[in-house]
């Protein structure tokens, strides 16, 4: 996901690769001049919603409790070496990755909701389909459209 600056010509045309990830800067930062009219931003409230934030709610509690149940403390890629005494009792859950599935599922639900609520042409649709699992190539393709 990182953008290596060497591939971008000092803010040249390579700036396109990250438009999606800096949308909120283009829309929320930069000079505003009172004497000018601003284009209506209706239709991009999607920016306010992002499943990555951890919100205190019953749903989140349950989701995290489930994720803990599935957590494989032995096989984790970033296994903490300070846990040797736990390993024997916690090797049975082979469900690594399920928590990620839950996350992208939530993102999908939100983007579906937005698509059906708005449905105003293709461009809005691509803007609302923000989810963790999007591939860079599909994102690039959308941006070139």
């Amino acid at each position: 996901m990182s953008v290596v600056p060497a591939q971008q010509g000092g803010g040249g045309s390579g700036g396109t690769s990250g438009l999606y990830d800096v949308l909120e800067l283009v829309l929320d930062r930069g000079i505003v001049i009172d004497a000018f009219v601003r284009v209506s931003l209706v239709g991009i409230e999607i920016l306010k919603i992002d499943v990555r934030v951890v919100v205190a709610s019953v749903d989140t509690y349950l989701r995290f409790a489930e994720a803990c149940n599935r957590l494989d403390l032995e096989a984790g890629p970033r296994k903490n070496p300070g846990l040797p005494d736990l390993v024997g009792e916690m090797t049975e859950s082979g469900a690594r990755g399920k928590s990620k599935g839950a996350l992208s599922g939530a993102a999908q639900t939100i983007s579906d909701a937005f698509n059906s609520a708005r449905g105003d042409g293709d461009e809005e649709k691509t803007e609302s389909s923000r989810s963790r699992g999007r591939s860079t190539s599909s994102r690039r393709k959308e941006e070139q459209e």
Partner: peptide, 25 residues
């Protein structure tokens, strides 16, 4: 949005530019 960003990126590559927020008319 992309056009706005591209114009600023192209100009910014050659010298300092103060970017406007998108949508100033």
């Amino acid at each position: 949005l992309l056009a706005h960003q591209t114009v600023l990126s192209e100009a910014g590559a050659a010298g300092a530019v103060l970017p406007m927020r998108f949508g100033g008319v």
